[in-house]
Design a protein around this nucleic acid. Structure first.
Length: 426
RNA sequence: GUGAGUGUAGCUCAAGGGUUAGAGCACCGGACUGUGGAUCCGGUGGUUGGGGGUUCGAAUCCCCUCACUCACCCCA
């Protein structure tokens, strides 16, 4: 680089990250496990665009939510439309269902997806501006058994990824019939105790009193502990739903704790709300969050179709996952001279056709340097081609793990590598 | 958006106003021209995050800015 180049190098946008090959292996593995498990339960992938009309989230996520009011990547495109990089996935699925009349298919509809989401937050551990979620949704099933099913499915995935020390919190946030009455009672209690609360909670008392329960201030917690709880206000239907949900959780052997103050941050939840938190994750410890949203599809002008789902944060998941990436096995070509290099290139094509990973480097090296390099790269096999091998048309294959060496034709060696045939030489 | 802390080689860290900013690891090469991991020797690599100021002199002190970390807030 010449000295008159600009000094500032271009770096990734704040809150976004490159996932380098070594780490990408972990992502691939986690994503593959998630797919396997979801498909075992009959879920199928539904891919929606990263970018959506802004109003989709204003209506879906909620115009008063923090996500919509201050965290969206929103801009006007060249056609003058306001568009937004999705901050969450559920509204997109709802849009797709209505747009493609998926509700006419036999229900329930089970979907999963994984991909990037965008929120203009202040980055910190476990919170990034571009982050990734694994998302599942079920539509058209009001039986609380499905609520328990997705929790159980989440647990299975966590177990598969070696995530330990998790705590599952469940609650019911009621429905249109019973929540308003509770909301009023709570607001009254909050306003009555207003001057004892921290400035932040004084504001919440007006805007969203449920949030006071989340305050970490000791005084606020004390005060809030005397507030009424939603669970005492649930209508018969919601109470029954919650009861059965818990019965099914017991049936599945899922350990959980009823957290009467658990409230999901998105406006649309009804009845079941749950969260799975992990220890050793710091302040952003929610690894999975979800719940039921029975009114959302209808509110979008679609059919009366209930829904439930959850999202898992992949970054958070991976930071507590204990997964072993299997080591790749490949053949390194150690050649001497230009003729041997060309023969290596030719041979590598043959072996690749046999499904064997091959690495031919183009730089001229001595045999020792080749081996040193092969070792550094972690090659399981080194295929040696020099003058002797060119003459014979047979090659030396060294097993780098057991330090054994074999001789044979390309296909014979391929057989050895694939473990089908052993031709050992003295 | 608010508060606090931290930025020195690719990584982990020294030097705390005074020669030319060092070490380990990593990378490249040699000892060793057809057989790796070890050892020894050498080499590449820095406008000390960036900009401005104070000073005879700044990695070091001050201001701004950027990034990261932690917390608030929010949430996955």
């Amino acid at each position: 680089m010449s000295s008159d180049q600009p000094k500032k190098e271009i770096s990734a946008i704040k809150g976004t990250h490159d996932i380098l090959p070594e780490e990408a292996r972990l992502w691939q593995l986690a994503e593959a496990r998630a797919r396997e498990i979801f498909e075992l339960y009959g879920y199928r992938e539904l891919r929606a665009p990263v970018i959506e009309p802004t109003e989709l989230f204003e209506k879906g996520t909620g115009a008063s939510s923090d996500i919509v009011t201050k965290e969206m990547y929103t801009f006007v495109d060249k056609g003058g439309r306001s568009v937004t990089l999705r901050p969450e996935y559920t509204p997109s699925v709802v849009r797709a269902i209505i747009e493609h009349r998926l509700d006419l298919q036999s229900q329930p509809l089970r979907y999963y997806y994984m991909g990037p989401m965008f929120r203009y937050d202040r980055p910190q551990k476990g919170r990034y501006r571009q982050f990734h979620q694994i998302d599942i949704e079920v539509f058209g099933e009001k039986d609380p058994a499905v609520d328990a099913e997705i929790v159980e499915m989440a647990h299975r995935l966590l177990a598969r990824l070696g995530v330990e020390d998790v705590l599952t919190l469940v609650n019911s946030v009621g429905c249109k019939k019973c929540r308003p009455a509770y909301g009023q009672e709570l607001r009254q209690a909050a306003l009555a105790a207003r001057d004892k609360l921290c400035p932040d909670c004084q504001r919440k008392a007006e805007v969203n009193p449920l949030r006071i329960f989340d305050c970490k201030n000791e005084v606020c917690r004390q005060v809030a502990s005397g507030f009424p709880l939603i669970i005492d206000f649930l209508c018969a239907e919601c109470r029954d739903h919650f009861h059965k949900f818990r019965e099914y959780l017991d049936l599945y052997g899922i350990e959980y704790r009823v957290e009467p103050t658990l409230v999901r941050g998105l406006d649309y939840y009804t009845k079941t709300a749950f969260e799975i938190v992990a220890e050793h994750l710091g302040a952003q410890n929610a690894i999975c969050g979800g719940g039921r949203y029975d009114d959302m599809v209808r509110e979008f002008g679609g059919p009366d179709l209930c829904g439930i789902g959850f999202a898992m944060g992949l970054e958070r998941l991976l930071s507590v996952a204990r997964i072993q990436v299997p080591k790749d096995s490949f053949v390194y070509f150690a050649y001497l001279g230009d003729q041997a290099k060309k023969e290596s290139l030719r041979l590598a094509r043959v072996l690749r056709s046999e499904g064997i990973e091959c690495l031919v480097e183009f730089r001229d090296r001595g045999m020792k340097a080749h081996f040193s390099r092969a070792n550094k790269l972690g090659a399981d096999w080194v295929l040696i081609i020099g003058e002797d091998e060119l003459k014979k048309g047979k090659y030396q294959l060294k097993d780098m793990v057991n330090s054994r060496q074999f001789e044979g034709s390309a296909l014979e060696l391929a057989g050895i590598i694939k473990g089908k045939k052993i031709l050992e030489i003295g």
